[in-house]
């Protein structure tokens, strides 16, 4: 069942087109990796999918009863400032907010979920620490735990392993694969082509201003775009 359908999508900033004519479909349970060079519009595409940015033209349709309250999101950089006082637990719990509706406080189940996700991302010991004092990799794990709390049906990740050491990156990929196995749709931006090919079911390769490839991972490896990217 298609959860997200993009038709002839064109995205840009202030009249400048970044990427045009993107068409692709994401079905429930898919694991889509978006690859491409810096500046090819991957993060812009993700913002459009999250409805943080309106496309210049084209359509993004959601299906299968997907609402915003079932979306998890791991941004590349948080807008949060350097001196923001927030404990890791407070940050992770804020991922549960979309389950609360108008209820002012977190339920026991939501608190438990936050603890479980901190456990899964290996940051339980940091729960009381101040978010701004963590290393880049630890912050990334905290944000992933927050995204996991928010992800009901789909999770969007913008370079989840940026700033992680190889062991932590491998753990992160396993965690995402496990989530995908539990029927959560994954859309991930990555520069790590080896991991993309290993884990993803589908690949979207964005080239200079348009899509070079969209389809199954196996087909991608045979395609021209895939072979040329693989050589790099």
């Amino acid at each position: 069942m298609p959860q997200l359908t993009c038709r002839n999508l064109t995205l840009g900033y202030e009249g400048k087109t970044v990427v045009s004519n993107l068409s692709f479909t994401v079905n429930a349970g898919d694991y889509l990796c978006v690859v491409g060079e810096n500046g090819s519009g991957k993060s812009t595409l993700m913002k459009a999918l999250l409805k943080l940015k309106t496309p210049t033209s084209g359509q993004i349709q959601t299906g299968g009863g997907l609402t915003r309250k079932e979306i998890g999101y791991l941004p590349q950089h948080t807008a949060a400032q350097k001196d923001f006082p927030a404990s890791v637990r407070e940050v992770v719990r804020s991922g549960c907010l979309n389950r609360c509706g108008l209820r002012p406080f977190y339920s026991k189940a939501e608190k438990r979920m936050a603890e479980e996700n901190m456990e899964n991302t290996g940051i339980s010991k940091l729960a009381k620490r101040c978010y701004r004092e963590l290393s880049g990799g630890q912050q990334q794990r905290a944000l992933l735990a927050r995204a996991l709390c928010a992800a009901g049906k789909i999770i969007l990740l913008d370079e989840p392993v940026a700033g992680l050491d190889p062991a932590a990156a491998a753990e992160m990929y396993e965690l995402i694969a496990k989530l995908n196995a539990e029927a959560v749709t994954v859309i991930m931006i990555s520069h790590d082509i080896a991991a993309a090919v290993k884990y993803a079911s589908h690949i979207l390769h964005i080239g200079n201003k348009s899509a070079l490839f969209f389809g199954l991972t196996a087909d991608y490896l045979q395609s021209e775009a895939g072979r040329s990217y693989g050589r790099l």
């Binding site: 999101y73 407070e90 804020s94």
Partner: peptide, 23 residues
Amino acid sequence: FLLFYHKIFAVTFDEDFAAATGT
């Protein structure tokens, strides 16, 4: 402030995330 404490935190900490996930 009390009723919306957690929402205020989320919107202050990371507005994009809050908006993207349906707050």
